[in-house]
């Protein structure tokens, strides 16, 4: 006993250095995990594991990964507001950029492997087929968000304007969900599951937004 009291207090771990902020492991961990589907597709492509129609398989898997990351990015703010978690917001930019990566490779697969630069057919698809129109629109909406995702763009636009621009995420993710529903032939259980999760997230977002506006309006009047 005496030994314990006489011993010098145990030194505290040194203060954290920059870059090892709390949850510093989260971003690299997610980045690493986010590319598991790509690695799996490459491995299966090499071993014939993508089935009889590998182009369609790759197109489908990339598109679904894009939707999952879009939904995850949409969930960040509701999670913080509902449960007080801050870590989702820290990885929101990363989730959004991964979603854009998958959406872009999904489109490039369609452009190069599926249609092989048949511009006439692609234009007809985008103009005449609602499911492709909405999918393509979602990608177009996401593009400025990906470009302006850096801190310097936040500064350049000013936070308020930057934030307003990034509300484009909401129509984009809604269109992506519709794209999936309209694409399916008969069984919409899987696309509907994503659409319902998304609808719940958007509803939370809308309620929080309206409450904030209402509260602001009350204090002003």
């Amino acid at each position: 006993m005496a030994v314990a009291t006489e011993a010098e207090p145990r030194p505290a771990p040194p203060a954290r250095r920059r870059g090892s902020a709390p949850y510093g492991w989260l971003k690299p961990g997610i980045l690493l995990g986010a590319f598991v589907p790509v690695a799996s597709m490459v491995q299966r492509a090499a071993s014939g594991g993508l089935g009889a129609n590998p182009i369609a398989e790759v197109e489908n898997e990339l598109g679904l990964a894009a939707l999952i990351f879009l939904v995850a990015a949409t969930a960040c703010t509701p999670f913080r507001r509902l449960f007080g978690w801050t870590w989702p917001v820290r990885i929101r930019r990363e989730l959004g950029l991964i979603a854009f990566f998958y959406a872009l490779t999904h489109f490039l697969t369609y452009l190069v492997l599926d249609q092989f630069f048949d511009w006439g057919a692609i234009a007809a698809d985008i103009l005449k087929r609602p499911f492709i129109t909405v999918g393509f629109t979602a990608l177009v909406l996401l593009t400025p968000l990906a470009i302006t995702s850096t801190n310097s763009w936040v500064k350049r636009l000013g936070f308020k304007r930057w934030q307003r621009l990034h509300w484009l995420l909401y129509p984009a993710v809604a269109l992506a969900a519709v794209h999936f529903i309209w694409r399916v032939k008969a069984d919409i259980r899987q696309p509907l599951t994503y659409a319902l999760i998304l609808a719940a997230l958007l509803a939370v977002r809308l309620v929080l937004y309206l409450r904030k506006r209402y509260a602001a309006g009350e204090t002003l009047s």
Binding site: L26, P28, L31, L32, G33, A34, P37, S40, S47, L64
Partner: peptide, 20 residues
């Protein structure tokens, strides 16, 4: 990092991937 990657990648592959 490894654990996060495992959980993220595993659940993603479960949702997205198809077995050969």
């Amino acid at each position: 990092i490894g654990g996060t990657a495992l959980v993220t990648g595993g659940s993603l592959q479960w949702l997205v991937g198809k077995s050969p």
